[in-house]
Design a protein around this nucleic acid. Structure first.
Lengths: 228, 228
DNA sequence: ACCTGAACACCGTTCAAGT
DNA sequence: ACCTGAACACCGTTCAAGT
């Protein structure tokens, strides 16, 4: 039919692999991703993937990075150091929202940014914003770390979902205070949302206290800097 | 030589399997634990394990629970509700210490207590102590959850170790604030320790603020209770 | 350049067989 | 009761072969 020799389009691309892998992880979990299964989902045979990624792990890393890329960083743009608290809050909420949209990939994200570009952009933006806001670099590093602990921990496993949804699971003789624990599974999202908000507020309140002691405001962009 | 027919001791026991599995996880990571490898370490063949555990996952659950059992809970014994802050601090430190002694099993622990006895004892003790200290049950649940987020997150992956130890890894053109990030890998433990202490202090400071608002002290054992 | 089938050295788990 | 070898249906990855 067609006389012109047109180049056949490749069946696969990195983007298509990452998208399909992400959908598979979301739908069936990390364990469901085998190279053969993923390839089948893409309509090719297993080894084909190795033309586009060096290992299966790099596919998962790419999925993780695509999730990191969904985190809003625009709150750090306003170079006004005075509002570090609001920025940190909004960033944390956006970060957690991205993770809870794809909870099954969190264990991969939790390994750290490594060489993943979106993960590094995220770390860079928040560290820079804290330093601009007047936090000493060592403290800004601590804030980056502790926010990460809290956010990853909150997304890694539901607290409520960690209990079994079975009335008879927790004998009051063994665990006198866990009588209602099996109910947690029901209201998972509500309980985890509330705990996250409570913890985030406590964290920010506590950091604000430390910010006063460190005299952070002096380093902000709206005041003369005292540190180099 | 021996005339008496003495019953031959079984080669395996649940305890010996758990101990060996824990040592293997510590030394070589979760990925190194296959039933065949673990069995070889124990001097038996792979399928033998199934006489003592129903699945490989249950072996890992048992390892995780043995780590939970190392967490000190004695600070919750003193039924004196007034010192919830100190108790919570000491508990968090002991919890994290247990996890960082066995970091490779943390992903399993992070799935939640489920039906693991030591994990449930831990949740029960801390929830009970917070309620005794005057926290309303819903708030005590939030505290249990948010402490868990923070502690698990801090143990799950080193923040510092999540960066690559390579001077050329982070181009300042791409990541203007990550110039020193490759140094983090060097001082991993120091940086993570400091971030944990900073975060824990902030969390407790923030919770103390909320405790005042909730009028928590009124429910403590040293004052007349106002709630049923 | 990109995809394939065959192959290698592994997996977790089951089961009939031994003691 | 507890351990074994053989077997099943899988893995991730390599590689020579095709286009």
């Amino acid at each position: 039919m067609c006389r012109m020799a047109r180049p056949r389009k490749p069946l696969l691309s990195r983007d298509r692999i990452v998208e399909t892998a992400c959908a598979l992880v979301d739908a069936e979990g990390l364990a469901a991703v085998s190279t053969r299964r993923l390839a089948a989902e893409l309509g090719v045979s297993g080894p084909s993937l190795y033309n586009h990624f060096r290992t299966k792990d790099q596919i998962l890393e790419a999925v993780a990075d695509s999730v990191s890329a969904q985190v809003d960083l625009s709150m750090f743009d306003a170079a006004d150091g005075r509002d570090w608290r609001t920025a940190l809050h909004d960033w944390a909420v956006s970060y957690r929202a991205a993770l809870t949209r794809h909870p099954n990939i969190v264990p991969v994200l939790a390994r750290g940014p490594g060489r993943r570009p979106a993960g590094l952009r995220l770390a860079d933006a928040m560290f820079g914003a804290m330093v601009d806001a007047g936090w000493p670099p060592a403290q800004a590093t601590s804030i980056g770390a502790l926010m990460r602990y809290f956010i990853m921990g909150s997304a890694l496993g539901s607290f409520a979902g960690g209990f079994v949804d079975d009335e008879t699971a927790y004998d009051p003789a063994d665990y006198p205070h866990l009588g209602q624990a099996h109910l947690l599974a029901d209201r998972q999202q509500l309980i985890d949302d509330r705990a996250f908000e409570t913890g985030l507020r406590a964290l920010l309140d506590g950091l604000a206290l430390q910010y006063e002691q460190v005299g952070g405001a002096a380093g902000g962009s709206s005041a003369p800097a005292v540190t180099p």
